[in-house]
Nucleic acid binder design. Structure first.
Length: 499
RNA sequence: GGGGGCGUAGCUCAGUCGGUAGAGCAGCGGCCUUUUAAGCCGGUGGUCGCAGGUUCGAGCCCUGCCGCCCUCACCA
């Protein structure tokens, strides 16, 4: 438990205690945000204020020491002078870099004009038993950054900034839908059947009900029940779980936005998406939609390009008929795709993904997807093989998926039944009868949308990896003898009742 | 799961041909009241990811394993 603690810091802690000082006092003077002091600092010179935060590297001049103190709003230099701190001075070395402190002092500047709080009182707020990473490089080891995100966050200000931006993005997504009269709702994460997407679920079990449950792969089918119920405009921002590979753009749990709007179709939803991006570009990027992602430039300002799925398919696969399996099979073999045991429609879509998807720099709406790969979308009146569905691509990355929602319960039941007969581990083993029943009560025509919030954050923060926009990405557990590993399996603490 | 790369002090990194384990920062002692990657002097600090093997001798070569990153596959 104490592996990795610097012995000298532990010794200082004990010295503090033996001198009757509490290294972890319950409260200290909180003072005010450093960021509030800086803009009109010149006018504040001479004021006595209190600030609290984490102490940086101490620069020691014998009878004078400097260090910066950082809080969530900024950093300010602290000047420790022997003559102003007669009581603190003899034990000054017991307070060191990375400790958490509360400083009271007079605002002033140094000879070089650096804003400085000349301390008249120093209170240790919490002793740090481990040193900070190196001041100049910070913490760069990616594994340590993800495993010890708490260090990453205080050592690397740009990381804090990215997550602040993520918070702002989520806030503005809410603001956008709220402004349109949508209700934010919460639907089950533990679901007896999984659906609304094609993905392998995590499974779990409820003891008292003795029931198998799935962690949701999408909230879709519950949200549309709400449309049946007359809520008309709903959205949910929540975690979904897919038991699949991990990569720079996949985390097993990720955050999805889904919205549904009655009396809208997929064209209306397209406009909503453009409206959302315009809003985000305005509020998060200050009107600048130009972002750099993986060394390429994109402009996220709407309007976006549009192209039909089948047009793109033909363009990259001349002479190949998406709906003709023999034709697709030939092409798939040409592309060295895996063809054994792959269903016809999936194979055709694999060809699309192999030949088209990477070329979609975007932002671009790809629309009118074949029905066979769109089990929840409404067919085009003029071509029942195709659905009113679009996906949004940026940088070859699928960012959103939307369609005119299928509200014909008979068609829906048939498509579910079709899925069950071709069941694989990505489709449920039985028809969601209750969902079909809901549709039988009548669902207004509606447009639905799903957007991967994490990927949206990647784009807007220029993060190459999804792990840079997820605070605690899933990592393999380390062996128990490693100091960074969680404590070896012990008796779990007794469950406590929520109060 | 396949392919490639990486793992050395708390942190950032060197380590040549296989020949005594190194630097900077942090921490420790000393000097210094205006530095800001402070400076100077002196010391401290190592399960070289783990386990085997080859060798007189392994951080280095070989095998297996663990972890992370990139990439492909799958997906949003």
């Amino acid at each position: 438990m104490t592996d990795g603690i610097a012995p000298d810091r532990l010794a200082k802690l004990q010295t503090l205690r033996s001198e009757g000082q509490d290294p972890f006092p319950p409260r200290v003077p909180r003072g005010q945000p450093i960021g509030d002091l800086l803009p009109d600092f010149d006018q504040r010179i001479g004021q006595t204020v209190t600030v609290a935060g984490r102490l940086g590297v101490v620069r020691d001049f014998g009878k004078l020491r400097f260090a910066h103190v950082t809080d969530r709003t900024g950093a300010l230099q602290v000047g420790f002078q022997r003559d102003r701190l007669p009581e603190f001075w003899p034990g000054r070395k017991l307070v060191e870099g990375n400790d958490l402190v509360s400083i009271t002092g007079e605002l002033g500047t140094t000879q070089k004009g650096e804003p400085t709080i000349w301390a008249t009182s120093v209170v240790l707020a919490a002793k740090a038993l481990r040193p900070a990473p190196e001041k100049w490089h910070g913490l760069t080891d990616t594994e340590q950054r993800y495993r010890a995100r708490y260090v990453d966050l205080f050592a690397n200000p740009e990381v804090r900034q990215s997550f602040a931006t993520r918070s702002q993005i989520v806030r503005e997504v809410r603001a956008y839908f709220d402004s349109l009269g949508y209700l934010e709702v919460e639907t089950p994460i533990l679901q007896p059947l999984f659906g609304g997407a094609a993905a392998r679920p995590f499974t779990t079990h409820h003891n008292t009900l003795d029931m198998q449950l799935f962690l949701r792969i999408a909230p879709e089918l519950y949200l549309k029940r709400l449309i049946v119920g007359g809520m008309e405009r709903v959205y949910e921002i929540g975690r979904v779980f897919r038991n699949e590979g991990i990569s720079t753009r996949h985390n097993p749990e990720f955050t999805m936005l889904e919205s549904y709007e009655a009396w809208a179709d997929y064209r209306d939803v397209m406009a909503r998406v453009e409206g959302l991006f315009a809003h985000l570009v305005d509020k998060v990027r200050g009107g600048d939609g130009k972002v750099t992602f993986r060394d390429k430039d994109y402009d996220l300002s709407p309007p976006f390009q549009k192209a039909k799925y089948l047009d793109l398919f033909v363009e990259k696969n001349p002479g190949v008929d998406w709906f003709d399996h023999a034709s697709v099979l030939t092409r798939a073999r040409e592309l060295h795709l895996k063809t054994d045991g792959i269903e016809a429609a999936k194979l055709a879509n694999d060809v699309f993904e192999a030949t088209v998807e990477d070329t979609l720099q975007g932002p671009i709406f790809v629309y009118d997807y074949p029905v066979a790969i769109s089990p929840l979308a409404k067919r085009l009146p003029e071509d029942p093989r195709v659905t009113e569905r679009f996906e949004l691509f940026v940088a070859g990355m699928e960012l959103g998926n939307a369609f005119s929602e299928l509200n014909d319960p008979i068609d829906q039941e048939q498509r579910f039944a079709e899925q069950v007969t071709h069941k694989d581990d990505e489709t449920p083993g039985e028809v969601d009868v209750d969902y079909v029943t809901a549709l039988e009560y009548g669902m207004p025509p509606a447009g639905g949308l799903g957007i991967g919030i994490d990927r949206l954050c990647m784009l807007l923060t220029g993060s190459t990896s999804i792990r840079d926009v997820v605070l605690f990405p899933l990592l393999r557990r380390l062996p128990a003898n490693d100091p960074n590993a969680p404590p070896a399996a012990e008796e779990p603490p007794a469950p406590t009742e929520p109060s």
